[in-house]
Design a protein around this nucleic acid. Structure first.
Length: 356
DNA sequence: ATCTTACACATGCT
DNA sequence: TCAGGCATGTGTAAGAT
């Protein structure tokens, strides 16, 4: 979806159209303390980008409209969009060959219904765009490719409201001239290491000795780099049944080491996590606490319970226990804290199988 | 001797 | 001067078979 959160706000508030719109995740610390989640293309003209501090965005364009993110609402729109798109995917025994990878992105397998014809794929992509526009008044950008990696990368070529097809015969011309940082899966750290090795373009990477890549990045990642740079990606679509972890993280009202202040926030976050757990009727077995200190260093500690549970009391207890461990070994004030649960399982009849 | 699990941490994407 | 949410992989240590 194109500039998804901001596009939804535009749709909901027609008087905003034409203006620069910036959707922010705010920490509550100050008027505009937080980061830009996304912004419309008008805002991008003034240099505003996702991830940038909101205060900086304000400096770049004081006239822009700054809105707080309404995540639950965007999720409800996302659910409807995904249902529309899903209906265009190949159908297998298990259901549609469809993979939602984020709140606004998804992969569809259409190999069967196109018989591998990329011209047909273009038609289907166009249909999807029209359907979404008709039903939800939102635009999206479609990428077609012989695998997920290429589909994802081609979706970025023409934005917003675009469609790009990269058939196997156009693969090398598309991929090789690009900087390695453009390859989906290569971030800052990897791009930096590659540059030190003299690898700048994707072509450089594709031609590089795989043994050398493995020695720097490990077996899995080394082989992946070599393959990906050649446009090879055999990963199948993964049907996802909700996330495998549920977490909440937030910024403290001020940097602190005060147990009471921190527990107060952690308890709220734990409550939110329990709500989500309840709505999906799940139990959890692991609890992870995240701390980000005033120097922006991140630390995590986790506990795995003997059996899955879904009691709020247990989550609170474990959370406090881990917090105390953190506090006894920390001298730098905390800025943000988070709670996350994992090893999720569908609930049984009792609170826990071994609880009675 | 080998397989499995727990944990901390790095990396990447939005 | 900077938000929140998730996935996946790796190294190491400890426990189980």
């Amino acid at each position: 979806m194109d500039y998804f959160f901001a596009a939804i706000e535009e749709r909901e508030k027609p008087d905003l159209r034409g203006k620069a719109i910036v959707v922010c995740m705010l920490s509550g610390r100050g008027e505009l303390s937080g980061a830009v989640s996304t912004c419309n293309y008008t805002a991008r003209e003034s240099g505003i980008r996702a991830g940038m501090p909101c205060s900086k965005a304000k400096k770049l364009n004081p006239e822009a409209v700054f809105l707080p993110a309404r995540k639950d609402f965007y999720t409800s729109v996302s659910d409807r969009v995904m249902e529309i798109i899903r209906s265009y995917a190949d159908v297998r025994e298990t259901g549609e060959a469809f993979e939602q990878i984020s709140i606004d992105e998804a992969f569809l397998e259409i190999t069967e219904k196109t018989g591998g014809d990329f011209n047909l794929a273009f038609e289907i992509g166009t249909q999807i765009k029209n359907d979404v526009k008709d039903k939800e008044k939102l635009t999206c950008s479609v990428g077609v490719g012989p695998n997920k990696l290429i589909a994802k990368m081609s979706s970025s070529v023409q934005k917003p409201d675009g469609i790009t097809v990269i058939s196997p015969d156009k693969l090398e011309n598309f991929l090789w001239p690009l900087k390695v940082s453009k390859l989906w899966g290569i971030g800052n750290v990897t791009a930096g290491k590659l540059q030190e090795m003299g690898i700048v373009t994707i072509k450089d990477l594709a031609e590089h000795d795989v043994i050398d890549l493995i020695s720097t990045f490990g077996k899995t990642r080394g082989i992946w780099l070599k393959q990906a740079a050649s446009g090879i990606d055999d990963s199948p679509l993964k049907e996802r049944d909700g996330s495998e972890q549920i977490g909440r993280i937030a910024t403290l009202p001020e940097d602190t080491l005060d147990v009471n202040l921190i527990s107060q926030l952690l308890d709220r976050l734990a409550g939110d996590v329990i709500s989500k757990l309840d709505s999906r009727e799940l139990s959890f077995r692991t609890v992870t606490i995240t701390v980000i200190n005033s120097k922006f260093r991140m630390y995590t500690k986790s506990r795995t319970l003997n059996h899955p549970v879904y009691s709020k009391e247990t989550l609170l207890e474990v959370t406090r226990e881990i917090l105390n461990e953190f506090l006894s070994e920390s001298r730098t004030e905390f800025r943000r804290v988070g709670v996350r649960v994992g090893e999720l399982q569908k609930r049984m009849g009792q609170k826990s199988l071994f609880d009675y």
